[in-house]
Nucleic acid binder design. Structure first.
Length: 154
DNA sequence: GCCAACGTTGGC
DNA sequence: GCCAACGTTGGC
């Protein structure tokens, strides 16, 4: 199943992912988003990489799931901003997967463009008040986004 | 910087 | 288990 993952480019952008190649998607502290990673994501699944809180916001490229889920190590790290005192190694609360870089779009596909598109405006990320950092994406939306970004099939 | 949307927390 | 208060997200 295709996905959309959000990241603030000031914190971690598609270019950062391209540089490191692969990255543990740590810091997700929302149960719904966690459940997607923990329960529904499969190795090889593609994800649109969305730049949020950016000027302009939009889809910046594509990543793919590169690991099975495992406990987010930052929940055990007292020095991390993502530390969760309620989580233990025996009973972790937060899980993550690794993402691997697939493609950086030549040009960002802006939110404004998505909203103006009949098909893509149906995506959750286009709807008002969708704060979820990970959302499932319909196959045809995924394909349409790639097409609009000038990428063929990946 | 504003504020609407919405998830989480905690008192009861 | 309700719900008000609070915190965060994220576009504008």
């Amino acid at each position: 199943m295709p996905w959309l993952i959000k990241s603030e480019p000031d914190v971690f952008s598609i270019h950062d992912l391209e540089k490191v190649g692969q990255e543990p998607w740590s810091g997700v502290r929302n149960y719904q988003a966690r459940n997607f990673m923990w329960r529904d994501m499969k190795v090889g699944d593609r994800a649109l990489f969305y730049h949020s809180n950016a000027k302009p916001p939009g889809i910046a490229g594509v990543a793919k799931v590169a690991s099975t889920p495992y406990p987010d190590p930052t929940q055990f790290d007292k020095k991390s901003e993502y530390f969760d005192p309620a989580a233990t190694e025996e009973k972790p609360r937060w899980y993550l997967v690794d993402f691997e870089h697939v493609t950086t779009f030549k040009e960002l596909l802006p939110l404004e463009t998505l909203k103006a598109d009949k098909t893509l405006s149906e995506m959750l990320v286009c709807k008002k008040g969708t704060r979820l950092s990970i959302t499932p994406v319909e196959k045809n939306h995924f394909a349409r986004a790639l097409k609009m970004a000038g990428c063929g099939a990946l």
